[in-house]
Design a protein around this nucleic acid. Sequence first.
DNA 1: AATGTGCGCAACCGCCTTACC
DNA 2: CGGTAAGGCGGTTGCGCACAT
Length: 251
Amino acid sequence: MVRAPSFDKNGIKKGAWSEDEDNKLRAYIQRYGHPNWRELPKFAGLSRCGKSCRLRWMNYLRPNVKHGSFTKEEEDVIIRVHNKLGNKWSKMAALLPGRSDNEIKNYWHTHLKDRVRKEQIVIKNEQSENLYEPHDANANRWPIENSNFINAEQEVEILLAVLSSDLAPSSSTSESSPTSLSVSDYEVPCDVTPQISDTFGNLWMEPYLPDEGSIISSSDYMFSSFGLSDEVISQASLQDEIIDDLFLWST
DNA sequence: AATGTGCGCAACCGCCTTACC
DNA sequence: CGGTAAGGCGGTTGCGCACAT
């Protein structure tokens, strides 16, 4: 299952990691952190390159990393994000705490790729049958196909932004009716807010109509379209990066 | 029992981006 | 502003295992 250990011409070990190497790397990082991956193996007593150490830590040794089969919810997130962005494994990993980008990538190629391909064929066939009813209310039940009012990457990033605690509504407003949500409910930095409004227009202000008679906000619609649980949402820790991204898009 | 074949996944490789000088 | 180093990302590979023949 793993590559056989070997040494390159510089004496750098390659291939499968031994338990002893794992212990050395784990102990060193837990004590000193990893301010410099290139220097780390030297001080940790490992005959590995820095990249190899980083990969081993990120994919296998770091705390809380999960292994084993994916849940249905995790599969849904992968499929939906892949539908929007393609092979952005690190974005998916950010939405799935404990899962590494490498593991998600492997899981996609071995379990999901073919399944999604088949399902997309089915969806396309069903859509082609509805060609003459493009504005039918039921069309809103296809969130992936009907949410391209901004580009896909922006949509996922805005989703992450809304999911993160800094931008989420404060507790005093989160209990209120969804129809009352507006951009002012979010703690967006003051120098960013007007630019977001300029860029995304009514995205933050207009309610989305998923079905006759019910009204939810655009952001709530995005939550539901990605099928993310509150638990996943609360664990997202990308707020700084997201705010930076939002700022960049708006300039 | 021996051999062949496909799958799953850890690890490697090369490129791109970012930070620093 | 250009060069360099380091980190990060996505594509690909190699090998052990399970199953089929």
